[in-house]
Design a protein around this nucleic acid. Structure first.
Lengths: 259, 259
DNA sequence: GAGAGTCATTCAATATATTGAATATTGTTC
DNA sequence: GAACAATATTCAATATATTGAATGACTCTC
C-alpha cells in the first residue's frame, strides 16, 4: 500500500493491527525524527491507546526503538535485518548487480535495478555508479511513482494497462518538463516497438534515462534495468549503443530468471 | 525479540497480530525460500486461517510477496524501503561511516559499527572494508549473539550486568576456541581497564577483533566500533596503534552523539 | 483416470483487541 | 514554585479478530 492514511486498509482486513503497524513504521520512516504516541496517533487517525499498544508490540519486535527519557518512538535497527535477508535471497538482485556494475563502468553512468510494484510505484533494489559520474544519488530502497520517467513508459508499454487505468495516474505525476498525454502515449508506443523506453530530460531536466523491461514469467514485466546519464554523456553515438547494451542485458536476465 | 516461536510474546501483548506478523517476516527471512500458508503456520504454531489473514495483511503492505501461481509467500521489497529510511536518519550511522572508512583504509582491515541490543544480540549498522583485506564478509543488518567475540567483552565490561545475567548467555556461545569462564572474566576486566576489548582468535581462529564502546547518553554503551584483522595484520606494533585509534574514534563519536 | 492426501480458503461462534473516558505523568508558563 | 496544559497510560465495555471445523482446489500415486 501507499496511502498511509489507513481508511479502508484497516477496515477491510482481518488483521488491522498489521496495517496499523505498517503505517506506523512508514510514518516513522518518513519523519525520521522520533515521535510521541499522540503525534503518531493524530497523524494516522488512530486512537492514542491503540497506537500505544501497536508501538509497544513493535518495540518488543525491535522494529521500533523507545527512548524512556523522552518517551519518543523511532525506527529501530531490526528493519535492517529484514532487508538484509531480502537482499540475500532475491535472485534478481544477485544477478543484476554484476550487470549493473559492468554497464556503469563501461558507459560511465549510474545504473539501477528496480522492482515494478504494479501501477503504484517502483522500488530500487540495486544500484551501481561509475566513479566518474556525478552522484545522481539514489539509494537502494528508494520508491518512485510507477509511471514517471523512462520506467513509467516501460510499464505503460509492456504492462497491457488500459488508458482508463493509466490516465489518472499520469495526471498527478510531477516532471521538470511534463510531456502532454498525447506526446507521452507516442513515446510509450515507441518504447513498445524498440523494446526500451527513453526519457529525454522530461523527468529531470538535462538528464536522460533509459529503462528496459525484465520478465520473470508473468505476463507483465516484473523488473527493469535503468541507466541514468547527464545529458551530454548520452549524446550522439553513445545513446544507441547504450540502448542495445541495456536491452540485451535485460533480455539475458529475463532468460536466466525464467529458466 | 528473537524467540521466533511466539509463546508469551503473543499472549502478553495487546496487539498479538503484530507479534505474529513479525515472526512471519523473520521466518520468511531466515528461510529465504518462498513458503506456503500451511508450512508457515506449522513452523510458528499458528492456526492456518490466522496465518492466512496475517499473510494477506502483509501482502497488502508490500512486506510480503505472493505468487498466485504457486501460492507461496516470500519477503517483498517493502522491507528495503523501511531499512533505507532507518539508515537515512540514524545519526550514529552517518557519523560512524566516515570514521570506519578512515580506519579501514589506514590499517588495511575490515571495520564495523554495531548497535548493541541488550544481552540478546548486536546488529551491524555500517561496514567498511579496505581494498587489500580479504572479504571477511559481513553485511549491514547481520545479527550476532551479544556476548561473543570482542563486542561481547565490551558489553560485559561496560554494561554493569551481574554474573547471574551473564553466565547463562555465556555458556551457550559458540567459539572456534572457547575461553573458560574465568579466562573470559579476566579479559572482560582488562577491557574495562583499557577502555577497549580484544578477542585474539577465540571467536574465529586466526582472526583478531577489537571493539570500543560508544555511549549516547544512557548508562550503558549503545553502540560499538569494531575492527577485524587477519591475525598477522595485527601483530606487534600494529595492534596497540589500532587500539588507540579505535578508542579515540569511539570517544569522539560518543561526544558528538551526546552533544 | 479415479482416489487419497494435502493444501488453501471460507464461515459463524467466541475469545479478545480496540475503544474512549478517566487517571497519572510530564513539561511549560507566569 | 504552583497551576496549567498537554501528554502518556490504564481500564472495563463492546465491536471484532481469531478460531477450528468444513469446503473446495489441487497434486501425486497407482
Amino acid at each position: 500500500m501507499a496511502t498511509d492514511d489507513l481508511p479502508e486498509t484497516v477496515r477491510a482486513s482481518k488483521a488491522p493491527a498489521i496495517a496499523r503497524a505498517a503505517a506506523v513504521l512508514r510514518l516513522l520512516g518518513k519523519r525520521g525524527t522520533a515521535m510521541g504516541v499522540q503525534a503518531i496517533a493524530r497523524e494516522l487517525d488512530m486512537v492514542p491507546s491503540t497506537c500505544l499498544y501497536v508501538l509497544r508490540a513493535l518495540v518488543i519486535e525491535e522494529l521500533v526503538a523507545f527512548d524512556p527519557d523522552t518517551k519518543r518512538y523511532a525506527l529501530d535497527a531490526g528493519v535492517l535485518t529484514l532487508a538484509r535477508h531480502w537482499l540475500r535471497r532475491d535472485k534478481f538482485h544477485d544477478l543484476a548487480q554484476p550487470v549493473l556494475d559492468r554497464l556503469s563502468g563501461e558507459y560511465g553512468l549510474t545504473t539501477l535495478a528496480v522492482k515494478l510494484m504494479g501501477l503504484g510505484h517502483i522500488i530500487v533494489v540495486a544500484m551501481s555508479q561509475s566513479s566518474q559520474s556525478f552522484q545522481l544519488s539514489t539509494q537502494v530502497g528508494s520508491r518512485f511513482p510507477a509511471l514517471v520517467s523512462a520506467t513509467g513508459r516501460c510499464i505503460a508499454a509492456f504492462g497491457n494497462y488500459s488508458d482508463a487505468e493509466l490516465r489518472p495516474r499520469f495526471d498527478v505525476l510531477r516532471w521538470d518538463e511534463p510531456p502532454s498525454w498525447e506526446e507521452w502515449r507516442r513515446q510509450v508506443d515507441q518504447a513498445r516497438e524498440e523494446g526500451i523506453a527513453i526519457d529525454a530530460g522530461h523527468y529531470i531536466a538535462g538528464v536522460t534515462v533509459a529503462a528496459a523491461p525484465v520478465w520473470t514469467k508473468s505476463a507483465r514485466p516484473s523488473h527493469a534495468l535503468v541507466a541514468i546519464g547527464i545529458g551530454s554523456a548520452l549524446r550522439g553515438e553513445a545513446l544507441p549503443r547504450l540502448k542495445h547494451a541495456l536491452r540485451d542485458s535485460a533480455r539475458s536476465l529475463s532468460d536466466q530468471l525464467s529458466g
